[in-house]
Design a protein around this nucleic acid. Structure first.
Length: 486
RNA sequence: GGUCUCGUGGCCGAGCGGUUAGGCACCGGUCUGCAAAACCGUCUACUCCGGUUCGAAUCCGGACGAGACCUCCA
């Protein structure tokens, strides 16, 4: 039961298009992963969380998905001044460790973060350093096809030559003759024949910590070629979806297209998807703005940006309330709102098991369920999905109050749909109990004593227990069914 | 400087030509010994100025403002 109505926004065309996979029922998806010269920050995580949601909905829709997300562990080697800059190497020297050691260290953290934020593991997470040979072969193909040239041990992509046959700038909308004026005056690029040419292979610099042999001498691969090499190896010359952060659109993705065309004669992906940036307190997350924090710090409450810790589920829920193509502003207020909203959603879902079925249903469950699919089929509109889920929450609560009815079969259908969308599609975990095994019987005793006092109208004692628990951080809730605590 | 995106109520954030987005907060109610919690309900909008249209938050033009990319970047 593949979702045939799925529409997705293609950055290549700038509009929503019906999703038509290359091979019926199968999807190949490549997403640019992290560069592990430092810990991935919360902004990085938003992109991966968004693509996790996209991956999840494709799976949920019945597609067989091969999801490749690379790990960049080879340094990006050039900066605007043409100097060799190996960011992984620089970080390693600072910490006095080998570059592989630092990459390994951050990779372990990244894997842990994926578990914490409930990301499904991709089908494959290939690393750049394990695919140097493939990158060299890809560069050789581009050279054979005449779209690159060798200078002094380095290889550059020939953008002008490429433009004779293909359109450079097709993704980002940039035009070569305009690019030159747009580009700020840059020096020290004498090796390049043309300002827009980019490195495929860069001759080794004495300070490089990572050096490989190649037909052009010792050196390391250019920044863009790893994705072309690995996407081709695992997904083929052409696949369905290529994703990444908005900031990778140019030049990285543009150059990937050029490389793929140059080597294999085709744009690698049918659909290009770009996730938008995360803002914190109104600005793009950045060390210089002082609004930079790590994904584990928000959970531990160890960032001074927020006054309290927030659960990974809450952070994820907050992110799902914004569309993946919109910027999202994370603030104390937005997180607190998400925390309460998520608790409301969560409570209603747990209520589903306790509902009393009726002979007849007072509203159309199918219509409600369909609205979930409609939202997600419209370019993965998770915020609208959540709005529709809250409509379900309202209905569930009304049933609980005896103001709406649902048959046992309808309750069961609703439950499957709602849990499916919340847990499998949005990747949120419901009903994760936090009660301590030793505390539970103690609380039972304490609440029993309080109930005893209450039935004797001994309000002094009952309130003393309630206030005492509150002081210990335990909140109790009285209801018709009894007293619960958390 | 160039290219592009965006400006929605107290906050976050959907919608993108006519129909309630939603969450949080506020307010009203139900429940309760009281309170909290929970639940139900209500109210606050579309930066400004023109234009197109029977009708615009939604399309077009302009102004102002914010941001992204052009250089490593999710």
């Amino acid at each position: 039961m593949h979702s045939s109505k799925l529409q997705l926004y293609n950055s290549l065309s700038g509009k929503k298009e019906p999703f038509q996979p290359l091979h019926e029922g199968r999807v190949g998806m490549y997403v640019c992963g992290p560069t592990l010269y430092s810990e991935p920050h919360m902004g990085n995580m938003r992109t991966f969380i968004n693509f996790d949601m996209i991956y999840r909905y494709l799976l949920f829709s019945g597609y067989h998905v091969k999801y490749v997300r690379n790990i960049t562990d080879a340094g990006h080697i050039t900066n605007s001044l043409g100097e060799a800059v190996d960011s992984i190497g620089s970080a390693a020297r600072l910490e006095q460790v080998q570059s592989l050691e630092i990459v390994y260290k951050y990779n372990v953290k990244f894997q842990e973060l994926q578990r914490i934020y409930n990301l499904l593991p991709p089908s494959i997470e290939p690393t750049a350093t394990a695919h140097i040979q493939e990158q060299i072969e890809m560069i050789e193909k581009i050279l054979e096809n005449g779209f690159a040239y060798v200078v002094n041990g380095s290889v550059y992509f020939d953008v002008r030559k490429f433009s004779e046959k293909y359109q450079y700038g097709i993704l980002s909308g940039r035009k070569i003759d305009e690019l030159e004026e747009e580009t700020r005056a840059l020096n020290a690029q004498e090796e390049k024949q043309f300002f827009a040419d980019f490195a495929l292979w860069k001759k080794a610099h004495p300070d490089d910590m990572q050096i490989w042999r190649s037909p052009w001498g010792d050196g390391n691969p250019g920044w863009h070629i790893e994705c072309t090499a690995m996407s081709t190896k695992y997904l083929g010359n052409q696949f369905d979806i290529h994703g990444g952060g908005m900031d990778l659109k140019f030049p990285h993705h543009e150059d990937e297209i050029a490389q793929n065309c140059g080597a294999l004669g085709c744009n690698p992906a049918t659909y290009w998807m770009h996730a938008n940036m995360l803002n914190v307190n109104g600005q793009k997350m950045s060390k210089s703005f002082g609004n930079y924090f790590l994904p584990q710090e928000i959970i531990e409450g160890s960032t001074s940006l927020f006054t309290k810790p927030f659960a990974a589920n809450v952070v994820r829920f907050c992110m799902m309330q914004a569309h993946y193509r919109s910027t999202l502003d994370l603030t104390q207020d937005s997180l607190e709102a998400a925390e309460k909203g998520y608790a409301r959603l969560s409570d209603a879902l747990l209520l589903l098991d306790k509902l009393t079925p009726s002979e007849q249903s007072s509203f159309d469950v199918q219509e409600l369920i369909q609205s979930f699919y409609t939202a997600m089929d419209d370019d993965f509109n998770a915020p609208t999905l959540i709005a529709n889920l809250f409509e379900a929450v309202r209905r569930i609560n009304l049933i609980n109050d005896g103001k709406e009815q649902l048959t046992a079969a309808d309750i069961s259908e609703l439950k499957n749909a709602v849990f499916g969308f919340v847990q499998e599609v949005l990747g949120l975990q419901i009903g994760v109990a936090n009660s301590d095994a030793k505390l539970a019987p103690v609380m039972e005793l304490v609440l029993d004593l309080r109930q005893h006092a209450r039935s004797n109208k001994d309000w002094t004692t009952s309130d003393r227990i309630r206030d005492g628990l509150a002081a210990a951080g335990i909140t109790i809730k009285d209801s018709k069914e009894g007293t619960s605590w958390s």
